[in-house]
Design a protein around this nucleic acid. Structure first.
Length: 243
DNA sequence: GCGACACTTGTTATACAGAT
DNA sequence: ATCTGTATAACAAGTGTCGC
């Protein structure tokens, strides 16, 4: 991570927590050493960022260090927070953290009178009906692979216990209530297939480009479903995960 | 490509402050 | 008194940039 990115991240982490955050916690989250965090904090304070450090407790970002006011309606705020709540509870670790950062950013950016819509919204996502299952592959890395338009070699066990190995062209990741679905073009089947991430036994992220651009592949997948737009969660859920 | 230089980062050690 | 955590310094190593 570049130093400039880390300085920004420190502000984000302090903004996300409404309590004091220790240098060790910051270091763990930013994957650096506490010493580097001390230096970064000193740099930020030197740039007049109002960070208060207290021996024995940690660092706190003073209230009032806000981004410029964001022009959002109460409904827009609730919509964004509702979505971020869902992702925070069901997304992969990187997306979950990003969702928490997003809520913190919205809270910092909107005027004071609109903050209750962030911290005390009238709508909430229900807790997951069952424990979110563990994925068999790194979803963050998978999303990078999709953006890069590169292939993945999978070892997969289907619902009847049959194992197979195949190379796929990842299209998108579907986030259902407790599982995540990899949608991909399967070279073995010559068609689009849905793979439950928790049934992936092993995944190799290949440095081989897919013949189709990610956007083209996504459009073909939607056409294959008979959709001319992004499918709703219910529609995606109703599709068989047969492989 | 190579060396000099500046900058960044990590490690270690020590001092100090607040909480228990 | 002890523990936890911040503050600071010294040093070494890694990395990027620049001029030759």
């Amino acid at each position: 991570m570049r130093r400039a990115d880390r300085l920004f991240q420190i502000i984000q982490v302090l903004r996300r927590h409404r309590r004091a955050v220790t240098a060790a916690e910051l270091a763990a989250e930013l994957e650096t050493s506490p010493r580097t965090v001390y230096r970064d904090i000193a740099t930020l304070v030197g740039q007049r960022v109002p960070i208060r450090g207290e021996a024995g407790s940690g660092y706190v970002l003073e209230r009032g260090y806000d981004l410029p006011a964001l022009m959002l309606t109460p409904d827009e705020i609730e919509a964004a927070v509702l979505g971020a709540q869902w992702v925070s509870g069901r997304g992969d670790p990187a997306l979950a953290r990003a969702a928490q950062d997003l809520i913190a950013k919205i809270a910092a950016a909107v005027p004071e009178r609109l903050r209750p819509y962030v911290f005390e919204p009238a709508s909430e996502t229900p807790p997951a009906r069952a424990r979110v299952v563990t994925d068999g592959l790194d979803i963050g890395r998978l999303r990078e692979q999709i953006h890069a338009g590169r292939k993945i070699a999978l070892r997969y066990r289907d619902e009847s216990g049959r194992e197979s190995e195949r190379v796929v062209w990842p299209v998108t990741v579907g986030y259902l209530d407790t599982v995540r679905i990899l949608v991909a073009w399967c070279e073995l089947r010559g068609d689009f297939r849905h793979f439950r991430a928790d049934r992936v036994l092993a995944a190799m992220f290949l440095d081989v480009r897919c013949p189709q651009r990610p956007a083209t592949l996504r459009a073909q997948w939607r056409r294959s479903l008979g959709l001319r737009r992004r499918p709703s969660a219910d529609e995606a859920d109703a599709r068989p995960a047969a492989v």
